[in-house]
Design a protein around this nucleic acid. Structure first.
Lengths: 143, 143
DNA sequence: TATTGTTATACTCTATAACTATA
DNA sequence: TATAGTTATAGAGTATAACAATA
């Protein structure tokens, strides 16, 4: 097994998994459903509130104008609140609204369930192996 | 280790890997670079030429109007050719042009290298473990 | 009638360029 | 001058609805 062979596996499987996650979120029957990117923004803010715009942009690896627009939409939808940072007046302080927390939990948990459902048939050692592998990949690719 | 815990790992790591792949493709210094979705279309067509539009749309899990537009752009860029199917005249036969093959190979291989580079430091058993894990996930999630 | 693909329309994601306000 | 964020603009990805051509 060479790194290149393993890399080919990564390039095959990751898009398939992304497609599954995307479909999961979409088929949850929400009236106005969240995109995968929006979910990631909310998930980040849940763990790191308040964050400034640049921090969220870096996390998703998008430019600041892109994130500015995404945040504006989430604010319009009542999921994120934007307040001023009194110490650094260039910065904005982003955090989830109560409704944002609620929607995030709902969508995140529902998606988690559909993923967990697929993993049901696996044995304990398989789950351990997969989790360990994902841990390694997460460390290597989450610079 | 429960399926839910493993599912949480999936939801954390998959977006990080996607971000890495996207950045890899983008930072290859092409004048007009391919998106991850376009790369997947070309990759599919390389293996299954000719394919009709619906087949490609199903593979990426997008609607036919969406794929129709994407294909149109790839045709404009000279990467895909659209011919008529004489037996089933509703269908179109999609395949890569020589230029499409060339660009696909170039972008795919360059991306593969950046992924393989990250995997360099891993031991043989780790690579085997990761590859096996990805194989399982690929089977479970690639319905 | 059902299927294949396209066109029209609209919204989100994404980037670059140019800008404002603050440091 | 440099940084944080916004606005303007453009293009890609995405969907639904309505359509044409074919089966």
């Amino acid at each position: 097994m060479t790194p290149a062979q393993c890399a080919a596996d990564v390039m095959t499987v990751v898009p398939a998994m992304t497609r599954f996650l995307r479909a999961s979120i979409r088929h949850q029957g929400q009236p106005q459903c969240l995109s995968l990117s929006q979910l990631r923004v909310l998930y980040f803010l849940q763990r790191r509130s308040p964050s400034c715009l640049s921090a969220v942009a870096d996390y998703l690896d998008v430019t600041r104008p892109t994130m500015s627009v995404m945040i504006e939409r989430l604010v319009q939808r009542g999921l994120v609140q934007r307040t001023n940072d009194p110490l650094e007046r260039r910065r904005i302080a982003l955090s989830l609204t109560p409704q944002g927390k609620t929607e995030l939990d709902q969508v995140y948990n529902a998606t988690l369930l559909t993923v967990a459902d697929r993993l049901q048939g696996l044995s304990e050692p398989e789950l351990v192996q997969i989790s360990a592998s994902l841990g390694i990949l997460g460390t290597l690719f989450d610079e």
